[in-house]
Design a protein around this nucleic acid. Structure first.
Lengths: 162, 162
DNA sequence: GTGCTATTTGCAAACGCGCCGCAAATCGGC
DNA sequence: GCCGATTTGCGGCGCGTTTGCAAATAGCAC
C-alpha cells in the first residue's frame, strides 16, 4: 500500500499516466490534467471504499494539495461522471471512482458502530419506482438508499455488553 | 389528560395541554414539560411536512425560543421517539411528528426543482432487506430511502424551456 | 404555597463542512 | 518557448449544528 516502489514500472505508470477515459473526458470538457487531479484519482483508485474530502486530502501525502482543491476537483470529476457522490448522513460527502463505462449506481450497508462499509448489489425495484412515479406524476426519478445496522463483530460486542 | 382532540377549535388548549403520550414519555425519561417543548410539538402538529430546525424556529412566533433550544429539544424528542428525523441531502435535518403508537417509518418523493414533498407508502421490500442482512451478517438493519425527481408542474416547465 | 434540586434555557462562542475571490502558478496548444 | 485559459493556494466566509456556562424553570416533597 506504500508508494516507495520505483522498481515497479506499472505502479509508477498508474500514478503518472492518466487513464484513457480520464484524458478523453477531461479534453472534452476543456479541462487540464494536473498533478492534484491525478493524485486524487489515484487515491480513489487505491481505495475501494467511498472517501470523504478530508480523507482524500489526508491520503494524498507528499502529493498533497490544498483541501479546497480537493473539493473543487471532486466537484468537476463528479460533473464529468468519473466519480460518484454518496451521502451517509453524517454530514460529509463521500466519493467513489466510477468503473469505466458504468454509471456507478449502487448502495451501501454501514455499521453504525464501527463504520464498516459494505457495497451491496440490492437496489430498489425499478417496477416499484416506476409505479411510484406514475402515481404521483413525477418524471426523471432517482433515489438515495443506504442501509445501516450492526456488523457481525459489533453485534457480538453489543450482546456481551448488555 | 385525555386523548387529543385536534378537531376542536380550542387551539390554545392544544398549545397549553400536552398530549397524554407526551407527558408519559417525558416522565419516563425524567424530562420536564416546558413551554418551548410544547410550542415546538405544536408547530409540528400543525404542519404535515418535515420541518427544518430553522423553519420550526421561525414558526414559533411569539412563543419563540432560542434556536439552540430548538436543536436540543428535537434531539431529545427524537430520542424519545416522539419525532422522526429525515435527511433530504440538502444539509439540513428535517423532523416530523410521529403518530401515536407508530414508529413513523416512511419515505418521501421530492421535486428537485420546486422542493415539493410527497409522502409515499412504498418501502424497500422487507424480504430483500432480511436477505441482505443475512448475507452480510448484519443485525438490526434499517434504511434511509428518499426519491427525487420532477413533479408534474416542473416537468412541464422544463419541457417548454428546452 | 414554599423550598430544593435536577433539568432546561438563552447567550455567545466555536465547530466542521463546503464554498468563494483573488493573485500566482500551471497546463496545453501554438 | 510563448501565451491564454484553467487551476491552485490561501484566506476568509456562510451555514447548520453543537457546546459551555450562568440564570431561569419545572416538578417534587413538605
Amino acid at each position: 500500500m506504500n508508494k516507495p516502489c520505483p522498481s515497479h514500472p506499472h505502479l509508477h505508470r498508474l500514478v503518472q499516466t492518466p487513464l484513457g477515459e480520464l484524458t478523453d473526458k477531461l479534453r472534452k470538457h476543456a479541462r487540464k490534467i494536473t498533478g492534484p487531479r491525478q493524485a486524487i484519482l489515484d487515491v480513489l483508485r487505491r481505495h475501494q471504499h467511498p472517501l470523504a474530502n478530508r480523507e482524500i486530502h489526508e491520503a494524498l501525502g507528499d502529493q498533497g494539495c490544498d483541501l479546497a482543491t480537493v473539493y473543487r476537483n471532486l466537484h468537476t470529476l463528479e460533473e464529468m461522471g468519473l466519480v460518484r457522490r454518496f451521502d451517509f448522513g453524517d454530514g460529509a460527502a463521500r466519493f467513489e471512482l466510477v468503473p469505466e463505462g458504468e454509471d456507478g449506481h449502487h448502495h451501501h450497508l454501514i455499521c453504525t458502530r464501527c463504520s464498516l462499509i459494505v457495497e451491496i448489489e440490492e437496489c430498489f425495484p425499478p417496477e416499484l419506482e416506476a409505479a411510484l412515479a406514475r402515481r404521483h406524476g413525477f418524471a426523471e426519478i432517482t433515489h438515495r438508499l443506504e442501509f445501516f445496522g450492526l456488523c457481525r463483530r459489533c453485534a457480538k460486542v453489543a450482546a456481551t455488553q448488555s
